[in-house]
Amino acid sequence: MNQNILVILGHPNPNSYCAKLAETYYEAAKKTGLNVTLLKLRDLKFDYNLNFGYDKNKKQELEPDLILSQTLIQNATHLVFVYPSWWASMPAILKAWIDRVFLPGFAFSYQKHSPFPKQLLKGKTARIIITMDAPTWYYKWFNRSPGVQLLKHGTLEFCGIKPVKVTYFDKIRFRDSKTLNQWIKKTERLGSKGQ
């Protein structure tokens, strides 16, 4: 099966380091002949609120950009999320997109006699590329990786996507250009291999 990669940029700033990482991954994958799409969440138009929660009696229509998002996810074999850790979690735009897109009936379905969902996104893998100002050890051991836990275990694996690998780029605010460029190169290598 051919690999079909979807890169999701969850930083709202088009000039951010995350944007550079996402674009680097995309270009490297494209250059090696992989089928890859870059989805910049800041360009999508949708209501950030899941207004009725999961109330099946009140349907919130999906905007065209969210229908497109679901189609891209369905067609993807590998998802790459690129975003910063803000308050140990993720930017509102990424959380809102997850709330609106990873819905019952699309990403999972409840099972009446089981605490475990039917996973509707099996057969896909993912990578999380996360940047932060804190040191990785602090994020992992003191904060207990809440943003990564939420996305990796609480969302992706819950829906059947695995394995989910994580790449941490830490202390961004304090890094010199040499280190930042090394991380761009690392991301380029990941993209060229579709990892």
Rank of each mutant, 00 (worst) to 15 (best):
3 Q>Y: 03
4 N>S: 14
6 L>N: 06
8 I>K: 09
11 H>T: 12
13 N>K: 14
15 N>L: 14
15 N>D: 15
16 S>H: 10
17 Y>E: 10
20 K>M: 11
22 A>L: 04
22 A>C: 06
23 E>P: 01
23 E>M: 07
24 T>P: 06
24 T>R: 07
29 A>Q: 00
29 A>H: 04
30 K>L: 14
30 K>P: 00
33 G>P: 12
34 L>C: 02
37 T>M: 07
45 K>M: 03
46 F>N: 03
49 N>I: 12
51 N>P: 05
52 F>A: 03
59 K>I: 15
63 E>F: 01
65 D>N: 10
66 L>G: 04
72 L>K: 15
77 T>P: 10
78 H>Y: 11
79 L>F: 08
79 L>M: 14
82 V>K: 10
83 Y>L: 06
83 Y>R: 07
86 W>N: 02
88 A>W: 14
88 A>F: 15
91 P>H: 13
93 I>A: 05
95 K>V: 03
95 K>P: 00
95 K>T: 06
95 K>I: 02
96 A>P: 02
96 A>Y: 04
98 I>A: 01
99 D>F: 01
99 D>Q: 01
100 R>K: 05
101 V>A: 06
105 G>A: 06
106 F>Y: 01
108 F>V: 02
109 S>R: 14
110 Y>K: 00
110 Y>T: 04
112 K>F: 12
123 G>V: 03
123 G>Y: 04
124 K>S: 09
124 K>F: 09
125 T>L: 07
126 A>I: 11
128 I>H: 10
128 I>M: 09
131 T>R: 07
131 T>K: 11
132 M>R: 10
133 D>P: 02
133 D>V: 05
135 P>R: 14
135 P>W: 09
136 T>L: 01
136 T>R: 15
138 Y>C: 03
138 Y>N: 07
138 Y>W: 15
140 K>L: 06
140 K>A: 14
147 G>H: 10
149 Q>A: 14
150 L>A: 13
150 L>P: 00
151 L>V: 10
152 K>Y: 07
156 L>K: 04
156 L>E: 10
157 E>I: 04
158 F>K: 01
160 G>Y: 08
164 V>W: 09
165 K>L: 12
166 V>L: 10
167 T>V: 07
167 T>M: 13
167 T>E: 02
168 Y>D: 00
168 Y>H: 13
171 K>P: 00
172 I>T: 12
173 R>N: 13
177 S>F: 05
180 L>S: 10
182 Q>M: 10
182 Q>N: 15
182 Q>V: 00
183 W>T: 00
185 K>E: 15
185 K>F: 12
187 T>Y: 04
192 S>V: 09
192 S>M: 13
193 K>G: 06
193 K>L: 15
